[in-house]
Design a protein around this nucleic acid. Structure first.
Length: 515
RNA sequence: GGUCGGUUCGUCUAGGGGUUAGGACAUCUCCCUUUCACGGAGGAAACACGGGUUCGAUUCCCGUACCGACUACCA
């Protein structure tokens, strides 16, 4: 990249649970930092004291940790540019706002909320195309540009509430380069005089963000596209402060869109369409409302991250299934797409499935054990591992294992009636008896051997596969769908298979008699 | 309304002045199979529209349409 060490930051506001879109922004920052052996910083932007949500910050760290996105500097980890929570840096910002006033790049404004509303109403009714507090309207407002110096002083010493606003220049073209979008050109007179410092003594995002990025020596600002419109203001601020030469490279990444319809992805979409939008479970402290996270929905972090990375970014080549290491080595801002990406839950599931089938049966077994324990089922490690090896191909999530394979751990209590009624007859019944006795002498219970044995059995008894296998399957697992009979027999083993065949017979007889 | 951004199969995307416009998910067909899956093979499926520029535009430029973001003393 360049000689200066790369330093990037993810700067969320703890006003709610971290959204999956935020995870992706954090991920891009992380990938970029790792790729260039730089530093990934997390900075908490909690300057709006009214919107803080308790637990949101802890949630953020828990989520990021689960996703494997670890910061080099941040509130928990520390670092030489701390503190990393803006609320702990509060004292820093005022000085910078004052500096801007001294330079004539900012001014005091005393307008009340009512006066601001009135201005907007007035502008709306007039020819004006905008309702902004800007170079066209500021001279009609109560600020240090229109008020006499003494009055300004009086108001301030008297304790009148005021804000500090940017004095956006009238005739200036702001030009900057966005790594995703290329050259951006905006006329400054289209910008409004954004508040930099609020009457409650806190800086706004714009001031705190620029000052902190400067102080923390941030080299690249990688953030969501929603910040694109305010980027010119930030560029102006860097210029006002005289930091233009070390201004970070801006990169605005596309938004995550709803799977259907219009707009960006929101929590409501998840609820409506039945998929998570938060990394891990979240319980709203105010409403008590609970939201299922990707983790609890059954996702592994690696495939989730893999899927997320590809929503707006594409490596060279057609490879899609990647590890974090792959993504780090192949990540490039140049290949970040410009357009927003729709969230597709089906594809997310596929990534999870791909990850699942690559895991060994024993690793999966270790994770599946707690589920079995909950159901008071004991089984050997080896057996569970073998079952998992079979089930993983049929499932997208570990959480699907029980539903698609409970019969491996306990005898079914219901049987497919259609199969029984159409396939259960005296001939099959006789063959079940013979099967039991032959099974007794079968020594090799591997899948291939059972396959061979069963086909020989069919031939010897003049049976077609369709006559025996469906009923046999129902006798063993209750349903007509599932793994091959050979696999089932191989896994269940002789004793269990014989036991299940035996006990199913009277049940089948009863079902037939009720015809 | 204004400012800015965007637009390649249903979805995520590759590509980029001359290509049979490639891949993945989803979908369909066939094969495998006692079944459902898995797997294998194959199919259908896209450059928003209109003008330029050019020998030639999906690719470059300009409009239009549509979509999105922003338009707070929120971030």
């Amino acid at each position: 990249m360049n000689e200066i060490p790369v330093r990037v930051r993810f700067a969320p506001s703890p006003t709610g649970p971290l959204h999956i879109g935020g995870v992706r922004t954090a991920l891009y920052n992380y990938l970029f930092a790792r790729k260039y052996h730089g530093t990934f910083i997390i900075r908490i932007e909690d300057t709006d004291q009214n919107r803080l949500v308790s637990g949101a910050e802890d949630y953020l760290f828990e989520s990021l940790a689960w996703c494997g996105i670890i910061s080099d500097e941040g509130p928990g980890t520390g670092g030489e540019y701390g503190p990393y929570r803006q609320s702990e840096r509060k004292e820093i910002y005022r000085e910078y706002a004052d500096r801007l006033i001294a330079n004539g790049h900012a001014y005091y404004a005393f307008d009340t909320v009512e006066e601001l509303d009135a201005m907007r109403e007035r502008l709306k009714a007039s020819e004006s195309s905008t309702q902004q507090y800007d170079c066209n309207s500021r001279m009609a407002m109560k600020n240090s540009l229109t008020l006499a110096a003494e009055e300004v002083q009086t108001r301030i010493t008297r304790g009148d509430p005021y804000v500090i606003r940017t004095k956006v220049p009238e005739n200036e073209t702001v030009i900057f380069n966005d790594l995703v979008r290329g050259e951006m050109v905006v006329e400054a007179n289209q910008l409004d005089d954004k508040v930099l410092f609020k009457s409650d003594g806190w800086p706004t995002y714009h001031l705190a963000n620029v000052v902190d990025d400067y102080l923390m020596k941030i080299t690249h600002v990688i953030r969501g596209e929603e910040w694109l419109p305010s980027a010119p203001l930030h560029v102006l601020l860097y210029k006002f402060f005289g930091w233009e030469s070390i201004m970070p490279q801006f990169t605005h990444v596309p938004l995550l869109l709803r799977p259907d319809g219009n707009g960006k992805l929101s929590k409501r979409d998840g609820d409506r369409l039945g998929f998570p939008v938060f990394p891990v479970n979240w319980s709203d402290p105010l409403s008590g409302e609970k939201s299922t996270g990707f983790r609890e929905r059954g996702f592994f972090p690696q495939p989730l991250i893999n899927f997320l990375a590809l929503l707006g970014w594409h490596p060279a080549g057609d490879k899609e299934v990647m590890t974090m290491e792959d993504m780090i080595s192949e990540f490039s801002i140049e290949h970040v797409h410009k357009a927003g990406a729709r969230f597709d839950f089906e594809k997310a599931k596929w990534f999870n499935h791909e990850y699942l089938i690559k895991m060994s049966g024993s690793r999966l077994a270790a994770m599946f054990f707690p589920v079995l324990q909950e159901k008071n089922i004991s089984a050997s490690e080896e057996f569970v591992a073998r079952v998992c090896d079979v089930l993983k191909h049929r499932c997208s999530f570990l959480s699907d294992f029980w539903e698609s394979g409970s019969f491996f751990f306990r005898q079914p209590d219901s049987f497919d009636e259609v199969i029984v009624k159409s396939k259960w007859n005296e001939k099959v019944k006789r063959n079940f008896e013979m099967l039991i006795s032959e099974l007794n002498s079968l020594s090799d219970f591997t899948g291939a051997s059972v396959d061979q044995f069963l086909h020989r059995f069919l031939g010897q008894n003049n049976l077609k596969a369709g006559e025996l296998f469906p009923v046999l399957r129902v006798a063993l697992i209750g349903t007509k769908n599932g793994p091959s009979v050979f696999e089932i027999i191989s896994l269940l083993g002789r004793d269990e298979v014989i036991k299940r065949i035996r006990s199913s017979q009277p049940i089948f007889d009863k079902m037939i008699s009720m015809l």
